[in-house]
Simulated assay, not measured.
Amino acid sequence: MPELALHLLLFLFAAAFLAGFIDSIAGGGGMVTIPAMLIAGIPPLETLGTNKLQSLFGSGSASLAYARHGHVNLKEQWPMALMSALGSVFGALLATVVPADVLKAVLPFLLIAIALYFGFKPNIGDVDKHRRMSVFLFTLTFVPVIGVYDGVFGPGTGSFFMLGFVSLAGYGILKATAHTKFLNFGSNFGAFIVFVLYGVVLWKVGLMMGAGQFLGAQVGSRYAMAKGAKIIKPLLVVVSIALAIRLLADPAHPLRIWLGM
């Protein structure tokens, strides 16, 4: 595709900064960057590939910030990140041959359910609770399943990881947020490799947006660490509902097509 004008690159940089800020706290950064790239005239497949490149900077930046302040041990989390990456590789390959209509139809309602869970469960805070699944089982089952989802489709991946860490691993919400980011980095990296092999990554755009993501994630992660559950919980609810509404508002959404809307 032709070179993007400077004002479009600056627009995408600003969008990536905002996405990095939001994603480092509650996930859902793709809700900002994917529409922004489509508005800039980038074709859908290149948008998905380039989105994975720039997302690496945001999830990597947030992971380093949380690790630096002792909220996550990245060395201990490598097995989970690797399983997330392997799952997303499989998901990205699956996306090339399997229609995602059913997933697209169900996803908004899953996101609304997540928003209700975090919004109405009164005892979710910064303190860890009882673990319901061992680290080993969590790594071998839940993590790669969400990785596959990220490779196939993507929106809401951070919300699903958060749900797992809070409800299954028993983490407090700040600790869950910190651990989510490195797994998101893994799933982004796995899918990114597949998209590179397919030649659908726009490197100049991705690196420009990556710089915005990196800076936004640094600001967002520091804000989350300062405010804890007071900001993470409501923003997670808002982002999940906003993403569900955006998906349902798309005229091409399978549910709207099935209902003739």
Rank of each mutant, 00 (worst) to 15 (best):
L236T: 15
A244R: 03
G212I: 05
A217F: 09
I231G: 05
S240E: 11
P234W: 12
K227P: 05
V237E: 11
G210V: 00
M225L: 10
W203N: 03
V238F: 15
V238L: 15
V201I: 03
Q213H: 14
V239Y: 04
L202Y: 00
V238N: 10
V201M: 01
L215Y: 05
G206M: 10
G216K: 10
V237T: 11
G199D: 13
K230T: 13
G206I: 01
L243Q: 07
V205D: 02
G210L: 00
F214D: 01
G228F: 13
G199W: 06
L202A: 03
K233C: 03
G199T: 08
L197Q: 12
G216R: 05
A224E: 06
L235D: 09
G212D: 04
G199Q: 13
K233V: 08
A244H: 13
K227S: 12
A226I: 09
L207P: 04
K230L: 11
V219W: 01
G212K: 00
L235C: 00
A244Q: 14
K230A: 14
K233T: 11
R222H: 13
G216A: 02
V219C: 11
A217T: 14
V205G: 05
M225H: 06
V201T: 01
L215C: 10
F214I: 00
L243T: 15
K227D: 00
V205C: 00
L236R: 08
Q213I: 05
A229G: 07
Q213D: 14
L202V: 13
L235F: 10
A229N: 13
L235V: 03
L207S: 13
G216I: 11
L215W: 11
G206H: 04
G212L: 02
K227L: 12
A242D: 11
F214Y: 01
V239L: 11
G199A: 14
G212H: 01
A229M: 03
M225F: 08
V238Y: 10
L207K: 05
A224K: 12
Q213Y: 04
A211G: 12
Q218W: 08
G220M: 03
A217N: 08
A229E: 14
V201K: 03
P234Q: 14
Y198M: 15
S221K: 07
F214K: 03
L235P: 05
Y198Q: 14
L235H: 08
V237H: 12
V239A: 13
W203H: 00
M208K: 02
Y223D: 08
L236M: 15
V237C: 11
G212A: 00
V200Q: 09
Q218Y: 04
I231Y: 10
G199S: 13
G199F: 05
K204E: 14
S240I: 09
Q218F: 07
A242G: 14
L243A: 15
A242Y: 10
G212T: 02
G220T: 00
A242E: 06
A224C: 12
A242C: 13
